[in-house]
């Protein structure tokens, strides 16, 4: 067995893998937050709750309707995204001309309500969700054992993140989105229904959270608190990457997952705080975040 700095490569790569997995979730969630913040100027505090709902929808599909993982991966983001559309139309739309703070308070309240409803009905302990049979088992890479499901999570999350980034940076729809982020009134005056675009953008950001939720279901358990556990870290990721930066949120998400994993190997005591330490340092040196523009 190879050792680096007295640490077995097995342990090192194992933690790196866990870091990458966590990073995949950080990236998908902070990407959704970034997309929503860019377009709606709202810090979507109920993002974690919607991620949790994404996982629960998969669980309900399976246990109540017998619909399995693969369909859930498609259906849950659609249902949860539709819930997002309703939230936007019912509430967020009314806050459009007001200060940031109102959106933050409203979504924070929504998160509490949504989590409360699920805790009331499903209890606080986690519900198991099985890895789909196609992805059980693993591959021995020689230097480490790679569970297939974890490989799948990393691949799909990379695909979703880079696909979103590409769509925003290089397609016509993406140019509408970027332009409307800068000057919605003018884009509307060119004939684009910006109001509808804002609603759909929110729905899309929520759908991203739901995809993350379905992916997470077999790894972490499905629990009403899964969202609030992860979302605090995700907000730190967003702050480090720079609020609203698309590529920044992806790179920072994966990067910080890995940083967390490595810390667990070399200095386990700091592993749960390392992201917040990095956040503090970044805020001191670059208050607008690593990828943020301006102050």
């Amino acid at each position: 067995m190879i050792e680096i700095f007295g640490i077995s490569s097995q342990a090192l790569f194992g933690q790196l893998l866990i870091g990458l997995i966590n990073g995949a979730f950080y990236a998908m969630l902070s990407l959704g937050l970034a997309v929503i913040f860019g377009m709606l100027n709202i810090i979507n505090f109920c993002h974690g709750a919607l991620y949790m709902i994404g996982a629960f929808v998969a669980w309900m599909l399976l246990n109540w309707l017998g619909i399995g993982y693969w369909w859930a991966l498609l259906i849950s983001p659609i249902i949860t995204g539709a819930l997002g559309v309703v939230i936007e139309r019912l509430f967020l739309q009314r806050l459009r001309d007001l200060d940031h703070l109102y959106g933050l308070l409203l979504t924070f309240g929504l998160a509490l309500i949504l989590e409360g409803v699920f805790r009331q009905n499903f209890g606080a302990s986690g519900l198991p969700y099985r890895i789909p049979p196609e992805l059980t088992g693993g591959t021995n890479l020689g230097f480490m054992f790679l569970p297939n499901y974890r490989a799948w999570v990393i691949v799909l999350s990379l695909f979703v993140c880079l696909g979103t980034w590409f769509a925003i940076e290089y397609t016509r729809l993406g140019s509408y989105l970027r332009a409307a982020t800068e000057n919605p009134a003018l884009v509307q005056a060119f004939g684009v229904n910006v109001s509808r675009m804002i609603t759909l953008t929110y729905g899309f950001g929520v759908a991203l959270a739901a995809i993350a939720g379905v992916l997470a279901a077999p790894i972490y358990q499905v629990s009403p608190l899964m969202g609030s556990n992860i979302i605090i870290v995700v907000f730190a990721v967003v702050v480090i990457g720079g609020m609203g930066s698309i590529l920044g949120s992806i790179v920072t998400g994966f990067g910080l997952g890995i940083a967390e994993g490595l810390t667990k190997v070399f200095y386990p005591e700091a592993s749960s705080t390392v992201i917040f330490v990095i956040m503090a340092i970044v805020l001191l040196i670059r208050p607008s975040g690593l990828f943020g523009k301006g102050a």
Binding site: S175, R178, A179, N183, V187
Partner: peptide, 13 residues
């Protein structure tokens, strides 16, 4: 729009 290049600005409307 600063986040769009010249061609994207031109093709936006």
């Amino acid at each position: 729009f600063s986040s769009l290049n010249v061609q994207e600005n031109l093709l936006l409307p």
